[in-house]
Simulated scan of single mutants.
Amino acid sequence: MRNFVEFARRSDEQHVTSKLAVEWASHQCGPATWSSRLSTVRSFARHLKVDDPRTEIPPSGIFPPQRRPRPFIYSDEEILDLLATMLELHPASFRRLTYHYFFGLLAATGLRFSEAARLLRDDADLETGMLTIRETKFGKSRLVPLHPSTTAALSRYSTDRDVCPIRRNCKFFFTGDRGRGLNHANPHYSFILWTRKAGLRDPTGTEGPRIHDLRHTFAVRTLLAWYRSGDDIERRLPELSTYLGHTYVRHTYRYLAAHPDLLEQAKLRLDARWEATE
């Protein structure tokens, strides 16, 4: 909404109009997001119209509905190659270690990119192996327990990071050479370079696996492990939902259709129930 307000201020319109909303929704973004961007303005316009009757509420159906991209589920080998490549891309920079452990944490915990990038050093309790993720999406905070191997890896990183006084004084857990927190662009660019090197993206293409797919991979692997161990998925799904920071369990259900192996496991469970009732 802040972006829309700035766009509106630069226009000649004195009130929110459908034309203005459509122009903003399709400005500087790909078609995949136009529908959701316009929907955001539509909700805002309904609220604004109470005080300003000249406000126009953009009609629905102008853009096709947004579709979630099909998630890419990484193999163990691809994740290991990603981490190894981060060490190779920046041989003379501390970013080699930062990106190596940063992407490793995403793969090991399913954290959102922003959650890991904004993680404060005071919120990483490596004595107990617990992360405190504060005020993230939908204003939720949560505790994220770590596997001992992940805790040990982050401890190695923090030791190397704090050798430099500039980095030691940074409030963020992950830092660059100058002791600043991570921005959005640089890790993404390094990630794209890896996908091209690994053959997961065309050399000049824009379509390909995303960093967010590490989160999908974590969720799918967790569900598969529960299926294969015979756990009650319905009972355990709220645990995964809480761990991932979802507001509702239904947001976690979509991972059940994210991988053919999950669908196969669900089919086997259903077949077994039918056989038991025959």
Rank of each mutant, 00 (worst) to 15 (best):
F113P: 07
L111P: 09
A225N: 03
Y243H: 14
M86I: 10
T242L: 14
L224V: 12
L143C: 07
R236Y: 11
E13M: 08
R68K: 14
T85K: 02
T252M: 15
T55M: 10
L146K: 07
D231S: 11
D271F: 12
G110F: 05
L120T: 04
P59I: 06
G104R: 09
P58Q: 04
R221L: 01
A84G: 09
T55P: 08
A45G: 07
M1T: 08
A25P: 03
T222K: 01
G230A: 09
F4E: 08
L182M: 14
D125I: 10
E6Q: 15
H15M: 10
A185H: 12
H147R: 12
I233F: 02
S11W: 06
F174G: 11
R228P: 03
Y253T: 08
V249Q: 07
L223M: 08
S36I: 05
D213Q: 04
H184V: 13
R2S: 07
V41E: 08
S149G: 09
L38D: 06
L237D: 01
T204I: 00
V5M: 13
S229G: 07
L120W: 11
S36K: 02
L237S: 01
A219F: 09
P203M: 01
L105H: 02
I62R: 01
W274V: 14
L200K: 13
D232S: 11
R250G: 01
H212L: 05
L182P: 12
V249Y: 03
T206I: 00
R67S: 03
H147V: 02
S11V: 05
V163L: 09
R68M: 10
M130E: 08
L270C: 06
